[in-house]
Amino acid sequence: MNLALTLPQLGWQAFFQQQLTLSEFEQALIARVTAHHRSGYQLMTQQGPCHLTASATLPDITIGDWLLLDQAGGFIRLLTRKSLFKRKAAGSQVGEQLIAANVDTLLIVCSLNHDFNLSRIERYLALAHEAGAEPLLVLTKADLCADVDAYLQQVTKLDPMLLVEVVNALDSSCSSKLQHWCRVGNTLAVVGSSGVGKSTLVNTLTGNTAQKTAAIRGDDSKGRHTTTARSMHFTATGAVLIDTPGMRELQLTNCDAGIRRTFADIDALARACRFNNCQHTAEPGCAVQQAIVQGELDARRLTNYQKLHAEQARNAASLQQRREKERQFSKLVKSVTSLKAKKYAE
């Protein structure tokens, strides 16, 4: 990694500059989080890399965040984020996991083989819209696909305005296709299933082989995890690139706005339903079901819309219950502490 990076090469923008006072800009160290480990955070400043030790007093921090440090490397504050990607914690845990912050463009990588999945693409689109980043669908392994147009027709039906690029991630020419997004000051994050070519794409865009790659299974195009942790890279054109591991589980939470934007066509149809609370199942006068019968809407798309809505509502409710329990416990602790203080004072 080049240690002599300017703030723009680290992804600094006017949005963050406007949050600083003149004295902060002149005296504080501006640092970006490039990695998160158990012991703390790896940071990058104009002066080079440094480390911030993990502490219970620190706010929730993730890769891509901007921090202000004092001259000794001590934490001052976390700058307001431009965007934030998060998901429900994997497994049975009740909580949110931060994925990346301050991403301008989300590269949703999907290969043109058995891995191609419209419902998964919609899930990533909802995540991007909720986070406040521009989604860009990157279809890889074009050199191994006999009918690219058939795939393009499917994704166009999701959203006619969706930005799509078809590439062979092994070919350096794919860099020119993504040149518009790989400009100085822009931060991109790469997401997708294992084996779709995320690490290969990162290596091509950065001009090195920092990320490990592995072949996929021939029978079902399934890949193996080669990226095990989120990592930050820098392209020759000045963009910041965040690579993420293939996520087997990406459950949405508090993502209502992102889902509605991703399925704007269904929301538009719903406004013509006879009943305001139509569930789009068997109600009379349902414009959504009528669109399916007439071939204007894919039934799969409605099913996924309903699935994601139910999922995010369920996860949001679970998180709210956990936060309420934590608030009640905190109040109990304060009450007990206050009683003890009074007892000792008597």
Rank of each mutant, 00 (worst) to 15 (best):
L118A: 03
K82E: 07
V138H: 12
H51N: 02
V155G: 04
D143M: 01
A128P: 11
E96V: 10
A72V: 10
A131H: 05
L170Q: 10
R77C: 12
F85L: 11
I121M: 00
Q97D: 04
I121E: 00
D104N: 10
F116N: 06
L84I: 13
P59A: 08
I108S: 01
K82V: 01
C50E: 14
N168R: 03
L84F: 12
L79M: 10
T80R: 06
L112M: 06
H114F: 08
V138R: 00
V109M: 01
K177E: 05
G73E: 10
T156Y: 08
D149P: 04
A126E: 08
E165T: 09
K82F: 08
L67F: 03
T80C: 11
L112G: 01
I61F: 01
L106T: 02
Q71H: 07
A150D: 08
A169I: 13
F116C: 01
T105D: 05
D147E: 13
A89H: 06
V184F: 12
S175V: 13
V184T: 05
L144D: 14
L84A: 11
V148H: 03
S83L: 06
A72W: 00
Y151Q: 06
G185F: 15
Q71M: 13
A100F: 04
V94F: 12
H51Q: 10
L98R: 03
K177F: 10
G95F: 10
C182S: 09
N102T: 12
E130R: 10
T80H: 15
S111T: 08
L112S: 06
S173F: 14
S92M: 15
L52A: 01
L152K: 04
P160Y: 10
D60T: 13
K88L: 10
A146I: 05
R120S: 00
S119Y: 11
G132A: 07
I99L: 15
I121D: 02
L107N: 00
N102F: 05
R87K: 09
L137P: 03
D143N: 11
V138K: 06
G64M: 11
L125G: 04
L136W: 08
K157R: 12
L118G: 02
V167W: 08
E96S: 09
G91A: 14
D159T: 11
G74F: 13
L106S: 00
L144Y: 00
L68F: 06
G132N: 05
T105C: 08
T57V: 13
S119P: 01
V166D: 03
N117W: 00
I63T: 03
S111P: 04
N113R: 02
D147R: 10
G73M: 14
S176E: 12
I108L: 05
Y151F: 15
L127E: 03
A126F: 04
P135C: 12
R183S: 09
H114L: 06
Y151K: 03
K82H: 14
N102E: 07
A101P: 02
I108G: 00
A126T: 09
K88W: 07
P160V: 13
V103A: 01
S119G: 15
F75C: 02
H114K: 04
D60C: 11
A133N: 03
T53V: 15
L112V: 06
C145S: 10
R123T: 02
T53H: 05
V184R: 14
L163P: 06
T80Q: 12
D104A: 01
W66K: 05
C182V: 07
A133D: 01
L144W: 01
K141N: 02
L162S: 12
S172M: 09
S175R: 08
V155L: 11
A169F: 07
